[in-house]
């Protein structure tokens, strides 16, 4: 599904090297968690995968279903099945959430040569998906993320994910700013999308989210590299001991 090979990335403007050789392989239906201290390169990885400006890939490649996606525009990556749930969802005044969703769904269908959804079919689908995420009609009518609470913004990200049905979902600190109930709701939304084929990369600081979204593999990232990979127990270890022990262990190795 996703294969990252020796990915080296620096900031275009400052020239600062952020990723120093990331290797990661995510198979179909798998859930991988990436944990790590602040500034280790977790969010940069998600931005580079989704095609955000401002980063220069100096080495390495990213393959999705065998296709190198680094040459693709962000919209082409999305149409190919990549989805990034933003850490800080963007507010867009003047564009209703409904218009935003319909435009996105139909743009992707068009890019894939599929027929656009009719207004009625779209409405039916969005209502059904919104309901399970407790997103009411008012939230759909309001401009994208405008005046949404932290929890509403994150639920809205999951709604987009549910509507777009991507092959690969990257969740960038989706748990930040969520209370316990909201985290449960968001996790249920994510779990509902697990169908054995769709893959997930869950970026988080905390083990807590992983209680709800159970990962198959846990990676620890530090200073632009994945320094350790293990099973779900690795996340528990971090929760108990922090990153310091792990970092020291790797340095001494």
């Amino acid at each position: 599904m996703l294969e990252i090979k020796s990915l080296h990335v620096k900031l275009e403007e400052e020239g600062k090297q952020i990723l120093k050789g990331v290797d990661l392989k995510v198979g179909p239906g798998e859930v991988h968690a990436i944990m790590g201290p602040n500034g280790s390169g977790k969010s940069t990885t998600s931005y580079v995968l989704s095609g955000r400006d401002g980063y220069e890939v100096t080495e390495g490649e990213v393959l999705m279903d065998g296709q190198d996606i680094l040459e693709l525009e962000p919209e082409e990556r999305a149409a190919a099945g990549l989805f990034l749930a933003f850490q800080y969802p963007v507010e867009i005044p003047g564009v209703s959430n409904m218009t935003f969703l319909r435009t996105a769904v139909n743009a992707q269908r068009k890019a894939r040569g599929e027929e656009e959804l009719s207004a009625t079919d779209f409405l039916k689908l969005v209502r059904e998906k919104a309901k399970s995420l407790k997103i009411d009609a008012d939230m759909l009518k309001r401009p994208v993320n405008m005046g949404f609470s932290g929890g509403e913004k994150k639920r809205n990200e999951i709604l987009q994910m549910a509507m777009l049905e991507p092959k690969l979902c990257i969740l960038d600190e989706t748990d930040s700013g969520l209370d316990v109930d909201a985290m449960k709701l968001v996790s249920e939304g994510v779990n509902a999308l697990r169908d054995g084929k769709r893959s997930f990369v869950v970026i988080t600081h905390y083990q807590r989210l992983l209680d709800h979204i159970k990962p198959d593999v846990v990676h620890i990232m530090s200073n632009g590299r994945i320094i350790k990979t293990g099973g779900p127990e690795l996340a528990l270890e971090v929760e108990h001991n922090g990153y310091a022990d792990l970092l020291a262990e790797v340095e001494n190795a």
Partner: peptide, 29 residues
């Protein structure tokens, strides 16, 4: 707004369509 433009593109909306959508949004008020 670059952020809004990228957000739309990351959802699959081509850059030109996204620019038009944001332009109309600007005029909406």
């Amino acid at each position: 707004d670059d952020e809004a433009l990228f957000y739309l593109r990351s959802r699959g909306v081509p850059a030109a369509d996204a620019t038009d959508l944001l332009t109309l949004a600007f005029l909406a008020e």
